[in-house]
């Protein structure tokens, strides 16, 4: 599903990632951990083609994303869902429109859009707020909306960068449960975090980075 071979990425000649090798199988739930500046965000950015590696190869669903043409990037992203610490919702559109956006850009029909958006909103439990502006929602609700947007397309991979960073522990726990439920339906999930509590709650595979190097890769619990 996701394979990294000797991947390095430099910013101003300083390595953000150096010689990372990683294989993730379909349906796995992987936590990406490590201290601030370890390279977690950089690794995720390489996976959704916001950055390209300076060395090494990256295969996502058997496609070499390191060599992807810029015009092909949108199509790769349509098979992925992305969740961020700061939610990244469009403030001028309501919840329904925000969640519908990945379908609209693909030209989905109104009927299909309504069905899928309603389903996604139900799955994350914010269906009752579908006509609200994101700014009128609590942080936890906003993150749920952004997760609904990430899964509305039925993605094969879900990438999340510090999804609980702006939430208190209780809300964070609820969000992690959502990810587990999404994973249980077959989606490969990769969550970057430096929150130990999350790791304890998930108790799955944990990949740890430090100063750009992969320092440990272990199954927890299972």
């Amino acid at each position: 599903m996701i394979q990294l071979f000797h991947v390095s990425k430099y910013y101003d000649r300083r390595p953000a990632l150096s010689d990372v090798n990683l294989q993730i199988a379909k349906g796995e739930f992987v936590l990406l951990m490590g201290p601030s500046g370890a390279g977690k965000t950089t690794l995720l950015k390489l996976l959704f083609c916001a950055e390209s590696p300076d060395q090494g190869q990256i295969l996502v669903q058997n496609r070499n994303v390191a060599r992807l043409r810029r015009s092909d990037v949108p199509y790769l992203r349509r098979s992925m869902g992305m969740v961020f610490q700061d939610f990244r919702l469009l403030p001028k559109k309501n919840v329904f429109e925000n969640v519908a956006l990945p379908l609209v850009v693909q030209g989905a029909s109104a009927f299909e859009t309504k069905r899928k958006v309603t389903e996604a909103l139900k799955a994350v439990g914010v269906e009752h707020r579908k006509d609200s502006r994101p700014t009128t929602l609590s942080a936890g609700e906003q993150q749920r909306v952004s997760i609904a947007r990430a899964i509305v397309n039925g993605p094969i991979i879900l990438l999340a960068d510090e999804p609980t960073g702006n939430l208190d522990p209780e809300l964070a726990g609820e969000i992690i449960e959502l990810f587990k439920a999404i994973n249980a339906r077959g989606t490969t999930v990769m969550v970057a975090t430096h929150n130990r509590q999350v790791a304890d709650q998930v108790s799955r595979r944990v990949v740890t980075l430090n100063q750009g190097k992969l320092v440990s890769d272990e199954g927890v619990g299972q």
Binding site: F48, A50, S71, P74, Y75, L76, R77, R78, M82, R88, L89, L90, L101, P102, V105, Q106, R149, N153
Partner: peptide, 8 residues
């Protein structure tokens, strides 16, 4: 954001 959700 539009780029991230796969808009061309």
């Amino acid at each position: 954001i539009m780029h991230l959700i796969g808009a061309t």
